[in-house]
Simulated scan of single mutants.
Amino acid sequence: MKAHKKDHTTQLINVGGQNYLTLLGRAYPTGERVWSSAIASDTGRIQNEFLGWMIVIGVGSMLLSLITINAMVRRIVRPLLQLSEQSAALTADTLNQDSIPEMTAAPKEVRQLAKTYSELIERLALSWNDQRRFVSAVSHELRTPLTIVQGYLHRTIKRSKSLSDDERRGLKTAEEESIRMRMLLDDLLDLARGDSGQLQLNQEMVDLEELVGKAADLSQSHLTDHRLEVVNNIPNHETSDALADPDRLQQVLFDLIDNAAKYSAKDSLITLVLNPNKHGIAIDVKDEGIGIPESDLPHIFNRFYRGKNSSESSGTGLGLSVVALMISAMGGQIHVQSKEGEGSCFSIILPKLTSSTISR
């Protein structure tokens, strides 16, 4: 027997080539001691088995926890993501269309949140519909008396011979303001009709070369401090006919030309260009004005939106939204390209008249 290690309570001994770990159990006053022993190899095996089971239990517990947490997170987060996506896609036009799906698998708190959100959308839709009806009714009621006032002012200016220069200038200013207010009411009425699906157009074949030239001539008569030029890039063997409402399209061109003049210096050039396009025919309205900041371009056709560099010019921010509404109703598209300080180009693309459109 050989002792490898010794202390007061434990001792590792070797008997016949086998290691034993001894532990002092009790010591008597007589000097006798009681020891217990165990094969050292067995202790190592037990420890290894214990460590192995601890690893298995630990990994299993972690996997079970991950599965449980993942299920709980999916159950809570997925409905919240649905609400977030619907909120991001919500617009005035989709208030009455988008409904919140049933979330029966979601926790009670999330279901309550979805219910509250759905009720909020319903209230917003009701409020928006009331606003549309109010704007439409007020615009319609105010349009007639404004037209009458404008007519009386115009006749008074033309027929009265006893007016002083100051009185004539005052009446002329009142007439111009009444015209501006009537045009604003017309824009509000068009937007209200578009929102309610009641905007009516008279679609027909239109010679764009003739219409653009007429719009340029009429605009030049009152834009005496700007130069207007019409360029026709349509090949001779192709027609410049397109499908549109001629009156509405002419008004759109007036609005774009006036907008170009408003943000351009005196004596600057405004160019109307007819170009062939794979989707039809394009009408470009180009100016040499202050341009539009890049950050404003995605929002330029939104209602009441005005560019950051337009603070010095009057306006309501409705003109371009009405233009976009009209072009869309004609089945066309409108795009804008601009660089601040270098001018802007508004491109209207109208579909050509084809046999399929004629059959409809």
Rank of each mutant, 00 (worst) to 15 (best):
L113I: 06
R168C: 11
L189R: 07
T316K: 12
K214H: 12
D98G: 06
L297F: 02
K115V: 09
N259T: 09
I55A: 13
L21P: 00
E176Y: 04
K308I: 12
L64S: 11
D296H: 03
E229T: 12
G332F: 00
L211T: 04
V56F: 11
S99T: 14
M183L: 15
G170D: 13
G170C: 09
L274C: 00
S338M: 02
L153F: 02
I270F: 01
P107Y: 05
Q200W: 04
M54G: 13
T91E: 13
F50C: 08
L297G: 02
G197M: 09
V206C: 02
L51V: 10
E210A: 14
E109Y: 14
R159F: 15
R123P: 00
R248A: 14
Y20Q: 08
H279C: 02
V323M: 08
T116Q: 12
A92T: 05
E288W: 00
S162P: 00
I121P: 03
V73G: 03
V252W: 07
D284Q: 06
S264H: 01
I100E: 07
L142A: 10
R132M: 14
K339L: 05
D241I: 13
I179T: 08
A114L: 01
G289H: 03
N275W: 00
Y263F: 13
F254I: 08
R33I: 00
R248H: 11
T156H: 03
E122S: 12
T224E: 12
S139Y: 00
G197A: 02
D284R: 02
T354A: 08
T224S: 15
K262Y: 04
L120C: 06
H299Q: 09
R306Y: 01
N233A: 15
A105R: 10
H335M: 08
S314D: 10
N236F: 12
I300Q: 02
I281A: 00
P145F: 01
D130Q: 13
T354V: 06
T224D: 10
G151C: 01
A329N: 05
Y263K: 05
S355Q: 15
K214P: 02
A125I: 08
I157K: 04
K286T: 02
S219K: 11
K266A: 14
Q131N: 12
V77F: 07
E340Q: 06
S268A: 10
M326E: 06
L142S: 05
N309Y: 03
L269D: 04
N302P: 01
T43N: 08
S136V: 03
Q200C: 06
L12T: 09
L243A: 13
W35A: 03
R168F: 10
T91C: 10
R180K: 14
Q220V: 01
